[in-house]
Design a protein around this nucleic acid. Structure first.
Length: 678
RNA sequence: GGCAGGAUAGCUCAGCUGGUUAGAGCGGCGGCUUCAUAAGCCGUAGGUCGCCGGUUCAAGUCCGGCUCCUGCUACCA
C-alpha cells in the first residue's frame, strides 16, 4: 500500500549559520524521507527559515541593515549548506511570507471564534524616550545574579542565569539609553486549558510521541491546568502585526510552526497539489522531526493550534538529542562549534551522513561526535568493507560484464534480500544505527565470500574465466544490494556505484532481483578515505581560526594559488623605509559596531601603561565586537590621525585578506601590549 | 530544588515480558592473505553489568535507598 507522508524538520532560526548540531536533525530527517521515497511512498519534505523575533531585529540593527536583508542573506546561506549535505527538501520557505501570514490569520480567526483569545494587562518595561514597550532583549543592564555588565533582559551570557527584564540592575533601553519604566501593557493570550483533555488524550494515547516525551508532558504540564500562552509582543517587533490588534505582533513561536503549513501551501501552488489533501486528510501521515529543546512548542501549543485551525495533528513527532563533541557541549572557544561550511572545507558531506546514521537511534539520547570513531567508521565500514567489494571485483569483469545467469552463491543473495524487511523496519523506526549495523553484517558476509573464492587466483588460470566471471557477478550483486540499502544515507555513493553497474539504485525492490548480463563500467574510486589530521584541523579553536562563524569569507573557495596574482608584490624598499612604520602589539580593550557604518568597528586599543588609541577598523563583516575584546592585535601606531565621519581614528589595525576577506593577526603567546615589531 | 533519561568489555552501544558459559562493532593481541583505497580473512584476550540492600529456586533484567552524568525546568512557557 502506498502511504502518503508529509515530513518536516524544525525551522532553523535565521539568526545564525547551520552547524553540525543542526545537521543531526536534517540528516536524520533526510534519511527518513529518502527511505520512504525508496520504498515507493508518496512523500513531501518541507522546511523553511524561522525569521521573526527580537533577536533577528537586534542583530540586523547591529549590522546596520534591515531584518529583511539579514534573513534574505541567511536564507541563501542556509539553503546552500543544506544542498551541500544532500538534504532533499521539496520546498524551503520562510516564515516571513505571504503564505505564512495567510495561514496564521486563518488560525487566529478560529481562535477568536472559539473565544480562546483573551486580553490582559501585563506590567512591561517602557522606553519613555522612544515611547515604545521593550521586548526583553531590548533592555540591557547588569545581571542580577553575577553582576556581569550589559546583559540582555532575558538571560545572562556570563553566568547563564535567566530572569525577567524587570530584575536587571541599571537597566536601560537599547534604543535610547533611557531608563525604562514599568507600564501596564495590554497583551493577548491563547487559552489552552479548554483543550487540555484533547491534548492529554493525544500526548498520552495516540502513539505519536516517544514515551519519555509523553511522561515529560504528563508530569510537567498536564498534571495541572494549562496556563494561557502569551502570544503577542508590542511594537517594535519584527514579525506579523496581529490583524485585529494594531501595534501588537504575534510572538515568533506563534507563527514559526505555522511555517510548516505555509511551506506546504507554497509547494502545493507550485506543484498543482491541494493543501487540504496534505493537512486535512486523515490518510496523510504528518511526521515532525525536531530537537528536544523545542519539545513543548510542538507537543502542546502546536497541536492545539492545529486542532483549532481545523488541521490534523501529526501522526508522529520524532525528537532527537543534542550533538556533543568529544563528550562535551559544542564550544566556540574550543573550536568544536563547527559550521556546515567549515566542515565542508575539510571533509566530505557523505562521511558525516554515514557517521550520524551509524550512531542515531530513535531515542532522545545525545549523540557524541568523536574524531577517531568518525575516521574509523568511514574508513573501515565504508571504504574497507563496502566500497572495497567493488574495487576488488569490478576490474575482473570490465571486459566481460556480468554473467548471463545468476550463479549459485550458496544463498548469499537470497539471505541479503530477505534481510531487507528487517533493515526497512529499522529505518522506519529511525533506528539507523541498527539499519547500518545490519547492512554491515551483509558486507562482512560478502567479503568472506571474496576471500573464499579468491578471484585473484582464478584470474591466473584462463580455463577458469567463467568461474571468475560468476564470482564477480555474485560479489557485485551483493554490493548492489548494499548500495540500495544504504541509498537513504549515501545517495551519492549509490549513484556512483549504480553508474558502475548500470543501476539507478532508486527502488528498494531492486534488492530482490540480481543483475545479470549487464555491462560493468571502468572502475573508478567511489569514495576516498578520511585522513585523521583533516578532522583535527576542522576543530582548530576559534582564536587561531580565521574570522568568525559563518562569515561570507568562510564561504569563498580556497584560492591560494592566485592570491599573489591578485595582489602582486610591491616595489623594493630599504630597511630605513621599513623602520619608519611603527608597528605595535595592542590589546583590544573595547569594541563596538558603528551602527551607521556598514563595515566599521570602533576599537579602543591599549598600548600598555594607560595609553589607549581610538581606531576605526573595517572589519565589521568578519568579526563580532564582543569576541575581539581582550585579544592582541597588531597596529600601525605612528599613522597620522584621520578624521572620519564617526570620529578621529588614531592608527590602523593590521589584517590580511583578498577580495574582502579579513584576517586579523595575533602574536604568539607572551607578547605584551606596547611591544614594537622589528 | 523539581522532572525526565542514563550508568553493561579500552570506546560506541544491544540485551523484550527475570532463567543455560552477558553480546555486537570498533580498538588491542596472534596468525593468514596480497585481488583491493596499508583494504580483506581467521583466531584470541578483555566485563564484581555504578554502589548498598531486598524480593525470588533464579536478577544486568523487578522493588527500595544512594552516588555520578546529561538534558529540561525553576513559581515565564
Amino acid at each position: 500500500m502506498t502511504r502518503q507522508i508529509l515530513v518536516t524538520s524544525a525551522l532553523p532560526y535565521a539568526n545564525g549559520p547551520i552547524h553540525l548540531g543542526h545537521l543531526v536533525e536534517y540528516v536524520q530527517t533526510d534519511i527518513f524521507v529518502r527511505f520512504q521515497r525508496l520504498r515507493g511512498h508518496r512523500v513531501v519534505y518541507l522546511c523553511a527559515d524561522d525569521t521573526h523575533g527580537a533577536a533577528i531585529m537586534i542583530r540586523a540593527q547591529k549590522e546596520g541593515r534591515t531584518p529583511e536583508q539579514l534573513i534574505a542573506d541567511m536564507a541563501v546561506q542556509h539553503q546552500r549548506d543544506f544542498a551541500n549535505f544532500g538534504i532533499s527538501f521539496d520546498h524551503y520557505g520562510s516564515t516571513n511570507s505571504k503564505a505564512n501570514y495567510t495561514v496564521a490569520k486563518g488560525i487566529w480567526a478560529n481562535l477568536r471564534r472559539d473565544g480562546l483569545v483573551v486580553e490582559r494587562s501585563v506590567e512591561r518595561l517602557y522606553d519613555p524616550v522612544q515611547k515604545t514597550f521593550l521586548a526583553d532583549r531590548f533592555v540591557i543592564g547588569d545581571c542580577p545574579r553575577c553582576g556581569a555588565r550589559d546583559q540582555y533582559g532575558d538571560s545572562c551570557e556570563a553566568c547563564g542565569a535567566t530572569y525577567a527584564a524587570t530584575e536587571l540592575k541599571q537597566p536601560r533601553s537599547v534604543h535610547s539609553g533611557a531608563t525604562p519604566e514599568l507600564r501596564p501593557s495590554s497583551q493577548l493570550f491563547v487559552r489552552l486549558e479548554p483543550l487540555q483533555a484533547e491534548l492529554t488524550q493525544w500526548t498520552q494515547h495516540s502513539g505519536a510521541l516517544q514515551t519519555e516525551v509523553a511522561n515529560y508532558l504528563a508530569g510537567h504540564f498536564l498534571d495541572k491546568p494549562l496556563q494561557d500562552w502569551d502570544v503577542s509582543r508590542p511594537a517594535p517587533y519584527f514579525g506579523f502585526e496581529i490583524p485585529d490588534a494594531p501595534g501588537q505582533y504575534w510572538y515568533v513561536w506563534f507563527d514559526a510552526p505555522i511555517g510548516y503549513i505555509a511551506s506546504t501551501a507554497e509547494w502545493c501552488a507550485r506543484e498543482g497539489q491541494q493543501l487540504d489533501d496534505w493537512w486535512r486528510n486523515p490518510q496523510c501521515e504528518i511526521v515532525h522531526f525536531l530537537g528536544k529543546d523545542i519539545t513543548y512548542f510542538h507537543t502542546l501549543f502546536w497541536p492545539a493550534l492545529l486542532s483549532v485551525g481545523g488541521y490534523q495533528r501529526p501522526r508522529r513527532v520524532q525528537i532527537h538529542g543534542f550533538l556533543r563533541v568529544n563528550g562535551e557541549k559544542m564550544s566556540k572557544s574550543k573550536g568544536t562549534f563547527v559550521t556546515a561550511a567549515r566542515y565542508l572545507e575539510h571533509l566530505d558531506a557523505e562521511w558525516l551522513r554515514y557517521y550520524y546514521a551509524s550512531k542515531l537511534s530513535s531515542k532522545i539520547d545525545d549523540l557524541d561526535f568523536q574524531a577517531e570513531e568518525f575516521v574509523g567508521k568511514v574508513n573501515s565500514d565504508l571504504v574497507g568493507r563496502v566500497v572495497n567489494l567493488a574495487s576488488r571485483s569490478a576490474r575482473f569483469v570490465e571486459a566481460t560484464g556480468l554473467s548471463a545467469r545468476y550463479p549459485d552463491d550458496g544463498g548469499l543473495f537470497a539471505r541479503a534480500a530477505a534481510l531487507g524487511e528487517t533493515i526497512a523496519a529499522a529505518y522506519e523506526a529511525c533506528d539507523y544505527r541498527e539499519a547500518t549495523r545490519l547492512v554491515m553484517t551483509l558486507a562482512d558476509a560478502a567479503n568472506e565470500y571474496v576471500e573464499q573464492k579468491a578471484p585473484w587466483t582464478l584470474k591466473k588460470d584462463p580455463a577458469r574465466a567463467t568461474e571468475l566471471q560468476d564470482v564477480c557477478t555474485v560479489v557485485l550483486n551483493l554490493f548492489h544490494q548494499l548500495l540500495v540499502y544504504l541509498q537513504p544515507v549515501l545517495p551519492q555513493l549509490a549513484a556512483r556505484g549504480g553508474a558502475l553497474l548500470g543501476s539507478t539504485c532508486d527502488r528498494w525492490q531492486l534488492t530482490a532481483t540480481p543483475l545479470v548480463g549487464t555491462r560493468v563500467a571502468k572502475f573508478e574510486h567511489l569514495m576516498t578515505r578520511v585522513e585523521a589530521d583533516k578532522v583535527a584541523s576542522m576543530f582548530v579553536p576559534e582564536a587561531s581560526a580565521p574570522a568568525g562563524v559563518a562569515t561570507p569569507a568562510a564561504v569563498a573557495p580556497a584560492v591560494a594559488a592566485d592570491t599573489l596574482a591578485k595582489e602582486p608584490l610591491a616595489a623594493e624598499i630599504t630597511i630605513d623605509d621599513f623602520t619608519k612604520v611603527d608597528l605595535r602589539i595592542a590589546e583590544v580593550v573595547a569594541a563596538e559596531a558603528v551602527p551607521e557604518a556598514k563595515k566599521l568597528l570602533r576599537l579602543t586599543l591599549s598600548l600598555g601603561g594607560g595609553v589607549t588609541r581610538n581606531v576605526f577598523a573595517g572589519i565589521k563583516g568578519a568579526y563580532e565586537p564582543e569576541r575581539l575584546v581582550g585579544r592582541l592585535v597588531v597596529m600601525v601606531a605612528n599613522l597620522a590621525p584621520r578624521k572620519m565621519k564617526f570620529g578621529m581614528s588614531e592608527g590602523m589595525v593590521i589584517a590580511a585578506g583578498t577580495d574582502g576577506e579579513v584576517y586579523l593577526l595575533s602574536p604568539d603567546a607572551g607578547a605584551k601590549a606596547g611591544q614594537r615589531l622589528h
